[in-house]
Computed example of a mutant assay.
Amino acid sequence: MPTENKVDAPLQVERSTVTKLVITGAPRLDAITVFLEDFGRRDCPTESDQNYQTAQGKITINCWDKSWNAYWGGMGPRTVAEFVAKCDWPYVLNCLDRGISSTRFSGDALHAFAKKCIVQRCRQQTGRHDWELGELSKSEARELWQDIEVLTSVESPNECWHHSKLLTELFGDEWHYPVDDKAIEENHEFTYLRRVVEAVQDALRQEQQQVAA
C-alpha cells in the first residue's frame, strides 16, 4: 500500500559563539585546551524585573587524555569566560566533576591503619588512643599482623564487609566508623583537576586584564 507523504517540520538551528584557548606553561601540566561556548541569553523573569534575561554558557577543558565540561544556565550578564574567572575554584571543579572528593578510600591506607592499631594495642597504649578494644598479647599481635596483609587488596568501603571478622578483631564491632575516617589517602585525580582549573582561571583572568588595559 502506498505510504502517506509527510511533510517534515523544518530543522531548528541555533548559532553559538565558541572561543578556543590553548594554555601552555602551567607548572606540571601538559597543554590545556579550553572551549568557551556562549549560547546567548534566556528569559528569566524576577519579581523586580519581568523582562530580566540571563546568559548561558558551557566550558570544555582537555588536558592530555582527560576531558571535563560544565554548563551554566544562569550566569547573569557575564560571558562564560567572565563567569568561570570570577568563581571560586572549588565551585568550578565540582561543576566539572560532580561529587569528586579530595580524599578517597585506599586499601593501602587501611592496611597502614591496621598496623598502627596492632602496634599501639600491643604496646598497651590503649589509654592514650581511642581504640574500642584493649591490649593484645604478642602472639595475638603476630597473628593479626599476618592476617592484615589481605587488606591491601580491598578496593572500596563495601569490600570491607568481606573482612568484617578481621576488622572486628582490630577495631571492635563499630569498626566501620574508624575505617571510614582513617582508611583514606589523597585523591590525586582531585589534586590534578584542581591544578587544571586554577591554570584555566589564571589564564582567563590574565586575558581579561589584557583586554581591559
Rank of each mutant, 00 (worst) to 15 (best):
M1K: 10
P2E: 12
E4K: 15
E4F: 11
A9L: 14
L11Y: 11
L11M: 13
L11Q: 11
Q12R: 13
T17E: 14
K20R: 14
K20G: 11
V22T: 13
I23F: 03
A26M: 05
T33L: 06
T33W: 03
V34C: 02
E37V: 09
E37R: 13
E37Y: 05
D38L: 07
F39D: 08
G40P: 04
R42E: 09
P45Q: 01
T46N: 01
D49L: 06
G57N: 00
G57D: 02
G57L: 05
T60N: 08
N62R: 15
C63L: 08
C63G: 04
D65L: 13
D65V: 12
D65R: 14
D65P: 04
D65C: 11
K66I: 09
K66C: 13
W68E: 03
N69E: 14
A70N: 09
Y71D: 07
W72R: 11
W72C: 08
W72P: 07
G73F: 05
G74Y: 15
M75W: 06
G76I: 00
T79H: 03
T79C: 04
T79V: 07
V80W: 01
A81M: 04
E82D: 10
A85E: 00
K86V: 07
C87Y: 11
C87S: 15
D88S: 10
D88P: 03
D88L: 05
D88F: 01
W89C: 04
V92I: 12
L93P: 08
L93K: 07
N94G: 10
L96M: 06
L96E: 04
S102D: 14
S102F: 09
R104L: 10
F105C: 02
L110W: 03
F113E: 12
A114M: 00
K116I: 10
C117L: 03
I118A: 07
Q120I: 06
C122L: 15
R123S: 15
H129E: 03
H129A: 08
E132I: 07
G134K: 02
G134P: 05
E135L: 07
L136H: 00
S137Q: 03
S139K: 13
A141I: 05
E143D: 12
D147Q: 14
E149T: 09
E149F: 11
V150F: 02
V150E: 06
V154K: 02
S156H: 05
P157I: 01
H162Q: 14
L167G: 03
T168M: 06
T168V: 04
D173R: 13
H176Q: 12
H176V: 11
H176M: 11
Y177W: 11
P178C: 02
E185S: 09
N187I: 05
H188N: 15
F190G: 02
F190Y: 14
Y192W: 13
L193E: 03
R194A: 10
A199M: 00
A203S: 08
Q208V: 00
Q209H: 12
Q209Y: 10
A212W: 09
A213V: 09
A213H: 08
